[in-house]
Amino acid sequence: MAKDSSRVLIADDNKVNRLLLSRSVELLGYGVSLAENGRIALERLRTKPFDLLLLDIEMPELDGFAVLEQIKADPQLREMPVIVTSSVEGLDNVVRCINLGAEDYLHKPVNQVLLKARIGASLEKKHLRDQQKAMMRRFVTSEVADDILQSGFALDGKRIHASVLFSDIRGFTAMLESQGPEETIDLLNTYYMLMFDAIGSHGGVVNQMIGDGLMALFGAPLPLDDCAVSAVAAALEMVELIEQFNHERKAVDKVAIRIGVGVATGDVVAGYIGTQQRAMYTCIGDTVNLAARLEAHTKVAGCGILIDDATQRALDGSVPVQSLGEVSFKGKAAAIGIFSVMAGQPN
């Protein structure tokens, strides 16, 4: 039989049973590891990748029921398929195992034909789930994917404290007219690669990309301590990376690019919007609107990075800033104190 890359862990305190099951599974083409009790099985699951667990019930130190309970409670393990192989009789025990998340319950001595079918079906379902996760992460951020996989998907929202960052390339429309489409796409791909790295390295999540502009969240969908500090640190690194990128562009006689960044901090309403067929994770509220206004105002102020007063207060003097006074923005009833982040001034 052809070798399969799937790894099966067998947990059974009876050495003969372990060896017999191991031989049967290996003959099916799968890799096998052994554990003589539930505690060791959990240690193996948490330190090495496995695709399936064959689990006995009556074991010392930690029985099969306790193993199932811990697997179900562990976000990293709860999707692990488990087939119980046990001599314990009684429908109540079977039901208990299924309720705790077991895929199936096979009585000992295990029928080899049935074992082959159950292992094949369980691994096929796991492989399909793994493909679904991989596909999801291609189209949404890993943080959003983890949020959906752990908490489930629902068209709802919640109010959270976060920092919102907007950025775009200055004079991008004029650049479009002076270069070909291939060069434009290559520039955008490089730009986004650099911006994603800067934002992600400080705990941010890129939420939207619109042409040459992007929106990033710090503190959603996962909480983030000192979200304002992280957002400003990301903005500073974004500007620094663009400056380094410009050295490369100048070396091949390409025009330098500049970006403007706006950061605002406060309460936002975050969640999934759309329909059950098509939805996206986003944030809405005054903080989001203000961050967008700040980014647009960098053109007027001639600054690389502008932040609001809430973000400035959260920095607590850790980053040099210059007050630009109060500015009245569209949609805001009162003028807002704004600050230029000094290290973010363009060359």
Rank of each mutant, 00 (worst) to 15 (best):
126 K>Q: 12
118 R>F: 00
146 D>S: 14
123 L>I: 14
111 N>Q: 11
133 K>L: 12
98 I>S: 04
107 H>A: 12
103 E>P: 02
136 M>Y: 07
116 K>M: 07
109 P>S: 04
139 F>E: 04
111 N>T: 01
106 L>N: 01
137 R>T: 07
147 D>I: 03
139 F>R: 07
120 G>F: 00
118 R>P: 00
106 L>S: 03
151 S>P: 00
125 K>W: 01
102 A>K: 02
147 D>C: 13
105 Y>F: 15
95 V>C: 06
112 Q>C: 01
148 I>S: 04
110 V>N: 01
96 R>V: 04
107 H>V: 04
133 K>G: 00
149 L>T: 07
132 Q>T: 15
130 D>N: 15
123 L>T: 03
103 E>F: 03
98 I>E: 03
144 V>T: 06
108 K>F: 01
144 V>G: 01
94 V>T: 12
144 V>M: 06
100 L>P: 04
131 Q>A: 11
120 G>E: 05
114 L>A: 10
115 L>E: 05
135 M>R: 12
152 G>S: 09
104 D>K: 05
123 L>P: 00
135 M>F: 11
144 V>Y: 02
106 L>Y: 03
132 Q>C: 07
102 A>W: 00
136 M>V: 06
120 G>C: 04
107 H>Y: 10
125 K>F: 01
109 P>T: 02
112 Q>L: 15
134 A>D: 12
106 L>E: 00
111 N>H: 06
131 Q>S: 12
133 K>E: 14
101 G>D: 05
120 G>M: 02
108 K>V: 01
146 D>K: 14
119 I>N: 00
126 K>S: 06
131 Q>K: 14
105 Y>V: 01
117 A>H: 10
98 I>W: 02
122 S>F: 00
115 L>Q: 06
124 E>N: 12
125 K>L: 13
137 R>W: 04
117 A>S: 11
96 R>G: 04
110 V>Y: 00
150 Q>I: 15
135 M>D: 07
100 L>S: 08
118 R>A: 02
125 K>T: 11
141 T>K: 10
147 D>P: 02
114 L>Q: 11
146 D>G: 05
130 D>E: 14
152 G>T: 08
105 Y>L: 02
99 N>V: 08
109 P>Y: 01
135 M>A: 14
137 R>V: 05
119 I>M: 08
152 G>I: 05
127 H>I: 09
94 V>L: 10
151 S>Y: 14
98 I>K: 08
143 E>R: 15
115 L>I: 07
104 D>P: 05
101 G>F: 03
147 D>M: 13
113 V>Y: 09
116 K>D: 01
148 I>E: 06
107 H>S: 13
145 A>H: 09
109 P>G: 03
128 L>S: 10
113 V>I: 15
131 Q>L: 13
120 G>A: 10
124 E>G: 09
121 A>K: 08
149 L>S: 08
124 E>V: 07
119 I>S: 00
110 V>C: 03
127 H>D: 09
95 V>R: 15
